[in-house]
Amino acid sequence: MRAYIKSTSAICAQQTFDKSEYLAEYIAPEGQYLKATEPPYRGIIDPKQIRRMSRIIKMSVATAHQALAEAEVQVPEAIIVGTGLGCIEDTIKFLKDIIEGEEGILSPTAFIQSTHNTIAGQIALLLQCPNYNFTYANRGHSFENSVIDARIQLSEGKDNILVGAAEEMNLQAFEIMYNMGCTGDRNKNDGSALGEGASFFVLTNEQKEGRPYLQDISVSNHITAEQLEKSLNSFLAKNKVDASDVDLLLMGSNEFEKDGFYEKIASLFADNTPQLDFKKICGEHFTASGFAMHLGTMILQDQVSLNNSYLAPQLKRPVRKILIYNHYKAMNHTFMLLSI
């Protein structure tokens, strides 16, 4: 089932929110993780409403707002958000208050904002959207769960579905994840640095000339490289796509995890198939595949404007089919096929 993508918007470490400057200049990362390049929120979010929002909510509200505006949709018929860690900044803040104050008097705002579905809930509140409102928090498949649900909602006849991926990082969360061994060399931007950001989409059943669509999505867990190969072959066969039809591979590869999976996929395509490692742009996080879908959509939708992008030399035109492959810690594997 095709899910047509009316619009998309993203915030990540590189400039993607201001589309006139889309990936125009490479922004060299500073600090220990790939901090998002955030737009000024004034003018996008009412100052009265912004005062309690943490960054993950601001990034989500702003990208949701841009995607809805571009799609000319006021109130979506469903809001579905995927986030692996959710509102980690407010979670840490509230936990710190509890521990440092030894369970004394606590200000409730951080607790209220710490709930995973605060993101989708806040968007619904701002839009006064009474419709279906779901949040998935399923590690490396948080965004995938959301997209799969969105496809069900579309098949049931709902239209204009707002789907998003959101993650935030802060120094304290970073330190913990670093000590857990979740990230490689802090100084090399090889795709393994931790990142953050938000990517939102408006999905529709409505086909239109030149409108990109998600042709299919497939997920699997804990598989071997051999099983992965089989799984790719059946995914492509099911969609009547030959490996040679794929114009671009968007891969979650990084230097830190040389595990054979990305290499396996690359080996199944001709050597001259262009490949982009999207985590060099958005960093590693639970919903990085959401950014991959955003980038793929932008490439399909707006091939010309990407001429100004620093990615331009790596793209072969025209791009009509993109295969996204990502895995999270070799546990959660994802294929997405984007077409135009």
Binding site: I105, S107, P108, T109
Partner: peptide
């Protein structure tokens, strides 16, 4: 929510 915050303010 602000009301709860004000209660915390008076208490603290």
């Amino acid at each position: 929510i602000d009301a709860l915050e004000l209660i915390v303010l008076l208490e603290k």
